[in-house]
């Protein structure tokens, strides 16, 4: 299969919806296959790449930070970018600027950027296919 470019829209916020688990599974396959991935993180999803997310221990279960090994979406975003790069693909991860400002999540992990719905329009025009994953 030749390299493709896909546009993906995400809307769900971190730590709330199984949609994101499935979305990251799909993105993982795309990255492993070396495709270019253009992600528009909109509304709650604009917090996925927020750099100040921190893992935590779980005192209820008696687990310290290392034992709990709590995943953060900022690490999942960074891992996606690294995986795509290792396989010859590129991820352009855009965080909706207005959504970011509303939520105060304007500090992003490296190699993601601020943008607007105009970026999603451009992504759709430049992509071989599009998948929009809306909130329920």
């Amino acid at each position: 299969m030749s390299k493709k470019t896909f546009a993906i829209a995400l809307m769900d916020p971190p730590y709330e919806s199984e949609n994101l688990t499935t979305a990251f599974r799909i993105l993982d396959v795309m990255a492993r296959r070396g495709h270019n991935i253009n992600v528009f993180a909109y509304e709650g999803a604009s917090g996925l790449a927020f750099a100040k997310q921190a893992p935590h221990p779980n005192p209820v279960h008696g687990k310290n930070l290392a034992e709990e090994n709590h995943p953060t979406t900022k690490d999942q975003v960074a891992a996606l970018l690294a995986l795509a790069a290792r396989n010859g693909g590129k991820v352009d991860w855009v965080n909706c600027g207005m959504c970011v400002d509303e939520r105060g999540v304007g500090e992003f992990v490296a190699d993601t950027r601020r943008g607007s719905p105009a970026d999603f329009h451009a992504f759709c025009e430049a992509s071989d296919n599009v998948l929009a994953i809306p909130t329920k």
């Binding site: 071989d128 296919n129 998948l131």
Partner: peptide
């Protein structure tokens, strides 16, 4: 498997969620 989604996207099929 979840790979089926990417298979369809690669083939240019209209994919709705």
């Amino acid at each position: 498997p979840i790979e089926i989604v990417v298979d369809h996207l690669e083939a240019g099929h209209k994919t709705l969620w």
